[in-house]
Computed example of a mutant assay.
Amino acid sequence: MELRGVRRQYGRGSGAVHALRGIDLALPRGSFTAVMGPSGSGKSTFLQCAAGLDRPTAGSVRLGGTEITGMNENKLTALRRSRLGFVFQAFNLLPSLTVEHNVLLPMRLAGRRPDREAAARVLAQVGLEAHARRRPGQLSGGQQQRVAIARALVTQPDVVFADEPTGALDTGTAAEVLTLLRQAVNDLSATVVMVTHDPTAASYADRVLFLADGAITDRLVRPTADQVAARMTALTARTRPAAPHPMAGAAA
């Protein structure tokens, strides 16, 4: 996936909000990239534009050599269903469907014949092959997120987008989920892009990109959690509005 000069502006004139200010980025196949930044830095907009869920105001997004920026909505929807995978903080599983049918859902939505062998294979990869007939409500939060990862991988997508995938999980369960994403990169050559606020989660990635005010301002390669936390602390300090001088009101 490549982003070239990607900008996203909401509104016009003096009230315009520049959510992205010219993102240039190449995401190689078989890589794990974490995206971090203070609140309002543009993380969510970045993910939405990269995944074709939102249209950039300017610039281009290419997926495996395919320009997706100018695609109509029907073609974009078909592309997302066949070539992209998504993992969300809230799992987004359908409670009325079994685990197996939840995993097979992307195939059904893409108009493909459900491949039960593929579902069994990815469920085995996430350690849930014995739970195929259960429903999400019968599983723990960590198990539900594993199902979501299996669902994201079943179509062998070009890119898996993970939006705060460990935000609703305890520390131990989060580590299991992150290890699965790491294994998807190492063993399946998946490309994972993860938005997170957690330095420990980011340390599972090959590199961490730091966003501030809609631009990539820093990056780390093969970071430790402590290195990520230190960069985030420094970045937040730089982007926080300065406090008014205590005598400013008296002077006025």
Rank of each mutant, 00 (worst) to 15 (best):
A120V: 00
L84Y: 08
L84R: 02
R134Y: 03
Q125W: 13
T98Q: 08
T69V: 02
R121P: 00
V99Q: 04
Q125Y: 10
I68C: 00
F91H: 06
R108Y: 06
L104N: 06
E67N: 13
K75Q: 14
I68D: 00
G70S: 05
L123T: 05
R134V: 03
R112A: 15
A124C: 04
P95Q: 05
E100Y: 01
V122P: 08
T66P: 01
L123D: 01
P106V: 06
E129D: 10
R83I: 00
R121W: 10
P106R: 07
S96V: 13
L105N: 09
L76M: 14
L97P: 05
A110M: 12
A130K: 14
L105Q: 11
V87G: 06
K75T: 04
L128S: 05
L84I: 03
K75M: 03
R134A: 07
R113Y: 01
P106F: 07
V99M: 04
M107N: 09
L76A: 05
S82E: 15
R81E: 00
R83C: 03
E100A: 14
R81P: 00
R113M: 07
N72D: 15
V122K: 06
L94T: 14
P106C: 09
R83Q: 15
T77V: 12
L104T: 05
M107D: 09
G70V: 01
R81V: 00
D115F: 07
L128Q: 04
K75F: 02
A119Q: 09
R81D: 03
R133H: 08
V87T: 05
L97D: 05
S96P: 04
F91S: 03
N92I: 02
R80C: 11
N102F: 08
T77E: 07
G85H: 06
T98A: 10
V126D: 09
L97W: 10
G85Y: 08
